[in-house]
Design a binder for these strands. Structure first.
Length: 204
DNA sequence: GAATAGATTGTCT
DNA sequence: GACAATCTATTCT
């Protein structure tokens, strides 16, 4: 099943970041590593749009070693370390020189589940498997080594599910960006309604 | 179910 | 030296 999936083209990422974030819901992330294959349906994602968006790492035009990937060409991976112990996975979007990215906050794991369960130390069908950005990276086996990786290769990519399931999409403010003032209240988080793997319960 | 504390490290001021 | 787009275990109710 998973081996029949083909990477979405770069044109998928080379669009406005809010469009990509919304369109990412229902897409499948695949990571094929030496350990094996792991994949899931994206059920929650957030858009970050520097330099004007004060919640983005690229806010105010910040361009450092850490944020460099955000400024690069669309269709690449931006990963960063949170709180010294969890990685977060983002899609670089829009165009080179525009530091926009989509944070993948939650996925619904797809079989085979054994590798993801082993990496998380949890039984299958536990929603804690992948209901948060750090958990997604742990389950998929993503970390700093994947920084800047091209998402249009068979190693790490997004794919369409072939339109088998049409997600009902909800919107809400982004999670844990209170420091960004008015920007924190923008509804730039997208999620699949009623999906049990969505991290923070939306109030809709 | 909600609230809280503690973990732990690369990056930037 | 402060801090971060978080997670987990624990301790409540």
């Amino acid at each position: 099943m998973l081996d029949r999936l083909a990477p979405l083209p770069r044109s998928f990422y080379a669009r406005p970041v809010l469009t990509v974030a919304r369109d990412a819901i229902g897409k499948i992330v695949v990571h094929a590593s030496e350990e094996g294959i792991a994949a899931g349906r994206i059920v929650e994602a957030e858009a970050y749009r520097g330099p004007e968006d004060r919640a983005a790492h690229s806010a105010g035009g910040r361009r450092t070693r850490r944020t460099e990937a955000m400024w690069g060409a669309p269709g690449h991976a931006y990963l960063f370390l949170l709180y010294g112990m969890h990685w977060a996975f983002n899609l670089v979007t829009t165009a080179e020189g525009e530091p926009h990215a989509v944070l993948i906050r939650a996925i619904e794991p797809l079989p085979p589940l054994d590798l993801m369960c082993a990496r998380r130390g949890l039984a299958a069908n536990r929603r804690e498997l992948t209901n948060g950005p750090g958990k997604v990276c742990a389950a998929l086996g993503l970390d700093g080594r994947h920084y800047g990786m091209d998402l249009c290769t068979p190693r790490l990519f997004l794919a369409s599910d072939g339109g088998t399931r049409r997600p009902r999409i909800g919107r809400s403010p982004r999670i844990n960006v209170d420091y960004a003032g008015a920007w924190a209240r923008r509804p730039w988080r997208f999620y699949e309604r009623e999906n049990r793997y969505v991290s923070v319960k939306p109030r809709d």
